[in-house]
Design a protein around this nucleic acid. Structure first.
Lengths: 197, 197
DNA sequence: CGCGTGATTGAAACCCTTCAAGTTTAGTGG
DNA sequence: CCACTAAACTTGAAGGGTTTCAATCACGCG
């Protein structure tokens, strides 16, 4: 049977069936139980993760021990500390599984081979990076400019599925507010007859 | 005489002298006076800008008319709305010159040709993107986690040169606080016998 | 059942903003 | 080169949004 990653490559990265058979033995999938680390601060990140099933998060922990979630990754999303991976530096960040998760461990060998046999894959890879940048810029713009309520509304329209799967305190951590504040924001929205969740 | 961009390409992107002569007629430089727009909201961004002289900023304006600066770009920095450029969408952002500025207008023709004649350039281009992502992630992590004072201290250690060249109210806009708040932060730091500026 | 985790609520404190008024600085024209 | 003006920066007082800390409630799981 064809894996989620394989269909994804065919659909989005222009990888053909014969190319896929060349790549198949380089595709390594790993299962993580809820709470398990895919990447730990201090390690050098060696992989890009493609989430086939489950849900993972990318976050930092500050001096006071508080977690700050940079990104969530549900099915068919990529996740990695690109800085650490590309520049071979030890990571400042953590990645762990929010649910039981299976992820494809994409390493340099895979990327190199895929780029070699498919120019489309190379193009696609750039697309991923460009899109990632666009995402991060919008997020910065929003963190600078919007109130807690606006940020939460943005979140539930952008990630309606995540709103249900992710515990509330993690959403708060993503938005840069406390769980208590998020609870109050939701209370206010409920009073305004808002039913987005 | 060799332009700043040309030396930059040779030093960082592995472009050789003969390759450079092939590229030379594709390198278009333009001068902007202080306050002039390099990119205006609503336009589709067609260029990546390499700042040879001067200083530019990349920012958004929210519904209330407030500016939020995403990025500064002094000499030898790149600046672009990559989302708009790559995906051909109209931009949400502005780019304008803070000082009189000359910028290289890098378009798709240039990138295509340079990638063609130099595999190193392609590698280098990916490096730029990866580095940009790393930068943005750190910024998000900081916006979520740090106080106004911490953010300002980070700014002056990361961009000591900009601290002097950029008006204070723009630094405030970059940090996501009001000019008044930044003024007070500086006052507190001065009392603590801090002399970073 | 009881424990632990997550969500809610309240009150006080804190950080930052807003608005309004000054002061300083920088640029312009006489 | 000074005088004038506008823009930038500072300062104060009041207000708003968010955090903190603490207590309570709700729920799922051993």
């Amino acid at each position: 049977m064809e894996s989620a990653f394989e269909s994804y490559l065919k659909k989005n990265a222009g990888i053909t069936e014969p190319q896929l058979s060349q790549l198949k033995n380089k595709i390594i999938t790993k299962a993580f139980t809820k709470g398990e680390f895919l990447l730990h601060k201090g390690q050098v990140c060696r992989h890009s993760f493609f989430i086939e099933k489950g849900l993972a998060r990318f976050y930092s922990i500050d001096r006071e021990g508080k977690e700050h979630i940079i990104q969530f990754a549900p099915e068919n999303w990529f996740l990695s500390d690109r800085g650490s991976l590309f520049f071979n530096e030890s990571s400042e960040f953590f990645i762990d599984a929010i649910e039981d998760t299976t992820a494809v461990m994409i390493d340099e060998h895979f990327n190199h081979l895929a780029s070699e046999i498919s120019p489309q894959f190379r193009k696609y890879n750039e697309r991923i990076l460009q899109n990632h940048i666009r995402h991060l810029q919008k997020r910065i713009s929003q963190l600078i400019g919007a109130s807690a309520e606006e940020r939460y509304l943005d979140f539930i329209t952008l990630y309606p599925d995540l709103t249900l799967r992710v515990p509330q305190w993690m959403i708060a951590s993503f938005l840069g507010i406390t769980p208590e504040s998020l609870s109050r924001v939701r209370k206010v929205l409920a009073k305004k007859n808002f039913h987005g969740f």
